[in-house]
Design a protein around this nucleic acid. Sequence first.
DNA 1: AGGACACTGAACCGAATGGTGCAATGACGG
DNA 2: CCGTCATTGCACCATTCGGTTCAGTGTCCT
Lengths: 115, 115
Amino acid sequence: MVNHMVQHDTLDRIYSALADSTRRDILTRLGEGPASIGELAGPHGMTLTGMTKHVRVLEDAGLVRTEKVGRSRQCRLGEERLDDAMAWISFYQRLWERRLDGLEAYFTLQRGTDS
Amino acid sequence: MVNHMVQHDTLDRIYSALADSTRRDILTRLGEGPASIGELAGPHGMTLTGMTKHVRVLEDAGLVRTEKVGRSRQCRLGEERLDDAMAWISFYQRLWERRLDGLEAYFTLQRGTDS
DNA sequence: AGGACACTGAACCGAATGGTGCAATGACGG
DNA sequence: CCGTCATTGCACCATTCGGTTCAGTGTCCT
C-alpha cells in the first residue's frame, strides 16, 4: 500500500536539499545562468569549502550539474525537474482536500439534525 | 559567526519535515483519517517516544494538528496546505524551463515552426 | 619557471537528527 | 483506591549537518 511514490531515497535527497535557504538561493542564482563556486560563495560570505559542500548536496539530488572548467567549476541547473517532489506534494494536497470534505460532511450532518 | 538568516524557517521546516519517508508515511496515513501515536508507531516498529518526536516535527511545520483526547493523542492533518512549498518548486521549474529555453531556443528556431 | 588563483580533501567542531530505554504523569475501568 | 494503558520528559547515543581552517593540487598568467 501507499506505493504511488518513487524511491524514497530520491525524495529524501531532494527535499532535504531544498530544506536550506542557502541552497534555495543557489538554485535561484543558477536560474539566472551558470556560476562558479566562488561566485556562489561570495554573496553568502561563506568559504569556498562550505559552498562546495552545498553544491555537492544539490548535485547529489540532481538539482545542479557541475563541470570542471580550467581551475574553476562551472555550476548550472541540473536535470532533476522536481516532478516527483511536486507530485508528492500534490498527493498530500489531495489528502488534505479529502479531509476537508470529510469535515464539512460531518458538520453538515450535525447541522442537519437527526441522522 | 552565527548564521543570521533564520526568518524563512517556514520553508525550511516544511521541506525538512518532508525529507523523511517515515514522516511522509505519517501524512499519508493521516490522509485516511485521524490516528493516535500508538496507531502511527505500530506499522513502523518504532517506539512511542520516537513517533512522538516525528509527529512533533510535522506539527511544528503545520502539517499535522494534534489534540490530547483522554489518555491518547489524536493526530490529524494540519492547516498547512503546502502552497508555499509548491510555489517554490514551481518557481524552480520556471527557472529550469527558462534555462532550457535559453539553451534550445536556438535549435527550435532553426527547426522552423511546428506546434 | 614561479607565483597567484580556484578549488578540494581532510580533520575538526558544535548543533541538530533519529533513534533508544526508563521513569513519570494522567486518564480509564473496576 | 488500584492497576493498567498511552503518552511524554529526560538522559543518552551514534550519525549527519553546516560550517570552519589548513594544506594540498592543478591551472592560468607573465
